[in-house]
């Protein structure tokens, strides 16, 4: 069943067009990867889905509801949660305060405890560091915190913008493993990545974005095997 659908979306920054006429959908239970070079428009796409940017044309449907004009803070309640690029954690808040903020929009306070349990299971490091300030965490820990915090809203759709950015190789693998685990627990994931190898290997379906338009689409495996994609994004060819 389709969870998220973008139809003919265009996004402008002033006069600069960052996304043009983009359409794609994400089905319930999938991991969908969006890969592309720097400046291709990946972050712009994510921010448009989470509601931080308004599209200049097109429509977005989520769980059967048109959310094109819905404010970002309401989309969270509806089930879209984003771990922003560069993590966007609250540096002056402790780990626990950050996680608590993640559940800010929720009405079902009793279930928050279960989600906290789940986050601590996924990232035991966070449990060890609950009193540490977000801003003093290492890059990888901040990434864990950003993902953990995003999960605290118990989202239907998790948006991850370059979770592997700036991490050491063994940790990139671990983060991707955790992404798969989150997905196995029933959360749909839309993943933006520069690290195309891992992102495609983990994804059910994937899209390649070039200067604001989708140029390739298919299953993760198909794109991994696609010669053009290989040459441009996988460093082989």
């Amino acid at each position: 069943m389709t969870l998220l659908e973008l139809k003919n979306i265009s996004v402008h920054y002033g006069r600069i067009q960052a996304i043009s006429d983009m359409s794609f959908s994400v089905d319930e239970g999938e991991i969908v990867s969006l890969i592309g070079a720097n400046g291709a428009g990946k972050t712009t796409t994510m921010r448009t889905i989470s509601g931080l940017l308004a599209p200049s044309a097109g429509s977005i449907t989520f769980a059967g509801q048109d959310i094109t004009r819905m404010k970002a803070h309401i989309r969270v309640v509806q089930g879209i949660s984003q771990a922003p690029e560069g993590r966007g954690i609250f540096p002056g808040m402790t780990v626990e305060e950050n996680l608590d903020m993640g559940s800010y929009g929720r009405k079902d306070r009793t279930k928050v405890a279960d989600d906290l349990e789940r986050v601590f299971d996924l990232f035991p490091r966070l449990k060890e560091r609950i009193k540490q300030f977000g801003g003093t965490m290492s890059g990888g820990e901040q990434q864990m915190l950003a993902i953990g915090r995003a999960l605290m809203s118990n989202p239907k759709l998790l948006l991850l913008d370059e979770p592997s950015m700036g991490l050491a190789p063994q940790f990139i693998r671990q983060i991707f493993k955790i992404v798969t685990e989150i997905n196995n627990q029933g959360t749909t994931v839309l993943l933006v990545e520069q690290n195309a190898n891992q992102a495609l290997a983990r994804a059910h379906r994937a899209f390649v974005l070039e200067t604001g338009s989708i140029t390739h689409r298919g299953t993760g495996k198909e794109l991994l095997a696609n010669p053009a994609v290989k040459e441009a994004y996988l460093g082989v060819g």
Binding site: A72, P84, G88, G92, Y104
Partner: peptide, 24 residues
Amino acid sequence: SRVGRAWIAIREDEDAAEIMGVPT
């Protein structure tokens, strides 16, 4: 209160606050 926490979050990072569900 909830409002106070929201203010602190806004001060720290407005976009992040908004995507936590804070009507910034």
